[in-house]
Every structure is written in structure tokens, then in C-alpha cells.
């Protein structure tokens, strides 16, 4: 990492175009892999034909069943996975930067649990139908969890450890609330569905979900990039950021709002998925450094690719069965995070 120091500003602009091209190429390759790989293997040529047919109206001969699998199932699922990975990874990055805590992540801080509670409450009580209603419930739950955890952490003294402990307390509380709602109001059938969704599940994803997930992820990416320099200024804490001219209140409000919204939408679509927000930004710091101008795009891209890979793994791990994607991200993420913590001894 030493060589990145002096010429970084000058070199990074010269390398900008090849890097962006490489990133987009990687993303495209991941999406194609997500569509090609599955229980019914589809040759890439066939996939290309179907996509050309659907996207550009090319009059090619396509098998309607294959076309259905590709267009109605695998492509929306892969795109939602990508959006979700980006949103969760960026959420983790923003939280780590703003609260100056390496362990900050929507899952660990109880935000995801709050979103689950809100989503489940809306689903069971049948308040407002559809993805938007559930997302709105999830947003309320996420915001409540956020507020509760932040208040608790501050009341306990405001240190790093206090925040993580408050996050644990918040997660437990909201998970218990979720279980309570399910036990109280759901029938057995509903309960099974909800439990499966809670662990993170992309099986039910269709096109309308894409139109929620991708704009949310893009909105989060734009909000982060816009505040990249302000996020850099948080290196030495919020007071130092303020003395460097950052409107700490406004930036915090905008970025935490974006995190809450992204987390809520992703949880309402695919359930609470852990470790993405924790592992991806830390891994990217090794590659892209700690300056947000490079770290944000790297994290967004890696989050998308990681989640698509996790989705492919969840479909292929046990033949004939789909493992919840949250299980896959945890199986990869937990050891990955342990590794990062050990390598990071002494610094962040």
C-alpha cells in the first residue's frame, strides 16, 4: 500500500477510464454468470440470444421455456442480488465511516432486524399491500431500531464497544418482536414463509422487485459519491470533519437516511442478509485504500459481485435445494471477517 501514497491523486485520474471499464466488465460478467449458472444449465449462446431478443427485439429463434427461465427468474434474481449487494456494502461503509467503528454494519447495529420487524408487521397485519407498503414498514422499523440503538449507545457513554453492545441489544429486541408478531398472528403456512424470507431468500424475486432494488442501490451510490470528500474528512472524527468545513449534521442525516432506506428496501425484498456490509468494505480498503473517491465505487462493485456469487452458490451448493443466501454470506463472511480483523491488528 505504500506505493499508493504520493502519486495517488495524479495516477488515479489517468487510470480512471480503464478502471471503470474493468469494473463494468466485471459486473456484466457476474450478471451473465448469474443467469447462465443454475440447476438447468443454459449455454451462454442461448442466454445471449434470449437477452438480445428481449432487450433489443432481435428476431432470433429462442426456446420459450429457456426464455422464461432466463427472463422471468434468473435475470431479475441476479439483478436484485447485485442491487442488494451494492446497497448493503455501501451501508456498511457509510456506517463505519460516520461512527468511526470497524464493526458498524446495518446487520450488527440492529437496523436490519428493525427493518424485518417492520416488514413482518406490515405483512401480517395486512396494512398496505405490495412491495412498497412492506418497504415503508421496513423503513419505519429500521429508523426506529437506528434511533433506539444510537440513543442507547450514547446513554451508555458513546464508545465503540457501547455501540456494538447497543446493536446487539437492539437486534435481540427487534428479533424477539418479529417472533412475537409471527407467533401471535401468522398461521403455520405464513410463518414458514416468513421464517424462510427472514434468513435471506431470493427465490421469490420478480421484475417489480428489480425496479425497487436497482434505483435504491443507485440512489445510495450517488449519495455516497456526492459526499465522498466529506466522508474522507471524518477520518479524525466528527469534530475534525466540522473544523474542515463539513456540515456534519446535514451529511450525517443524508447518509444515515440513505442507509436506512437502502437497508429497509433490501430487507423487505430479500430478508436480512448479514456480513456483506462488514466484509466487503474492509476487503476493499486493502485494494482501493481508505479514500472514499476510490473506496465507494470499489465497495459498490464488490458488493454486487459478492452477492451474485453468493446467490449462485446458494443455488448450487446442495443439488435440488436452495440454501438461504444469508447462510452463504455468513459462511463466507464470518471467516473472511476474522481474517480481516487479524490482518488489521493495530490499524483499522
Amino acid at each position: 500500500m505504500t506505493e499508493s501514497a504520493i502519486p495517488v491523486g495524479r495516477a488515479s485520474r489517468r487510470l480512471l477510464i480503464p478502471r471503470v471499464a474493468m469494473g463494468l466488465g466485471l459486473l456484466l460478467a457476474a450478471v451473465l454468470a448469474g443467469v447462465v449458472i443454475g440447476e438447468t444449465p443454459l449455454p451462454p449462446g442461448q442466454v445471449a440470444n434470449v437477452l438480445a431478443h428481449k432487450l433489443f427485439g432481435a428476431s432470433l429463434l429462442v426456446d420459450p421455456i429457456d426464455a422464461g427461465i432466463i427472463w422471468n427468474y434468473r435475470l431479475p434474481r441476479t439483478l436484485v442480488a447485485a442491487g442488494c449487494g451494492t446497497a448493503l456494502a455501501l451501508s456498511g461503509l457509510v456506517l463505519q465511516t460516520l461512527v468511526r467503528n470497524a464493526l458498524a454494519d446495518p446487520y450488527l447495529l440492529g437496523v436490519s432486524a428493525g427493518a424485518s420487524t417492520g416488514a413482518v408487521a406490515v405483512t401480517i397485519m395486512g396494512l398496505g399491500a405490495g412491495a412498497i407498503g412492506i418497504s415503508a414498514g421496513a423503513f419505519m422499523g429500521a429508523a426506529m431500531a437506528f434511533g433506539l440503538v444510537a440513543t442507547l449507545a450514547r446513554a451508555a457513554g458513546g464508545g465503540s464497544a457501547q455501540l456494538v453492545l447497543a446493536g446487539i441489544a437492539g437486534s435481540q429486541l427487534f428479533n424477539a418482536l418479529t417472533s412475537f408478531f409471527i407467533a401471535k398472528s401468522a398461521n403455520a403456512e405464513q410463518a414458514r414463509g416468513i421464517m424462510f424470507w427472514l434468513l435471506g431468500n431470493l427465490s421469490g424475486v420478480r421484475w417489480p422487485d428489480v425496479t425497487l432494488a436497482l434505483p435504491a442501490a443507485c440512489m445510495g451510490l450517488v449519495a455516497c459519491l456526492w459526499h465522498a470528500r466529506s466522508m474522507d474528512a471524518f477520518s479524525f472524527g466528527a469534530a475534525s470533519a466540522a473544523s474542515l468545513g463539513v456540515s456534519v449534521r446535514r451529511v450525517t442525516l443524508v447518509l444515515l437516511g440513505a442507509v436506512t432506506l437502502m437497508t429497509a428496501i433490501m430487507v423487505s425484498l430479500v430478508g436480512a442478509i448479514g456480513f456483506v456490509g462488514l466484509v466487503v468494505p474492509h476487503a476493499m480498503r486493502f485494494i482501493a485504500g481508505t479514500r472514499h473517491r476510490a473506496l465507494i465505487p470499489a465497495t459498490a462493485l464488490a458488493g454486487a459481485v459478492f452477492m451474485i456469487a453468493a446467490d449462485i452458490t446458494s443455488r448450487m451448493m446442495i443439488p435440488g435445494q436452495v440454501v438461504p443466501i444469508g447462510v452463504v454470506t455468513a459462511l463466507v463472511g464470518a471467516p473472511g471477517f476474522a481474517l480481516i480483523m487479524i490482518r488489521n491488528r493495530g490499524r483499522r
Partner: peptide, 23 residues
């Protein structure tokens, strides 16, 4: 002043330009 970020010395000084640069 302390940070856990793996910043280079130069990057620390670069922070000083923050108020002079648009987003």
C-alpha cells in the same frame, strides 16, 4: 487527533484542502 484509517501522511495533509473543493 488519531485515526484508525490506514492513511498516508500525504493524505492527512490533503484533508486540509477539503473546504476549498466542491463536492
Amino acid at each position: 487527533a488519531d485515526t484508525g484509517d490506514a492513511l498516508s501522511a500525504r493524505e492527512v495533509v490533503e484533508l486540509g484542502r477539503t473546504p476549498w473543493l466542491a463536492a
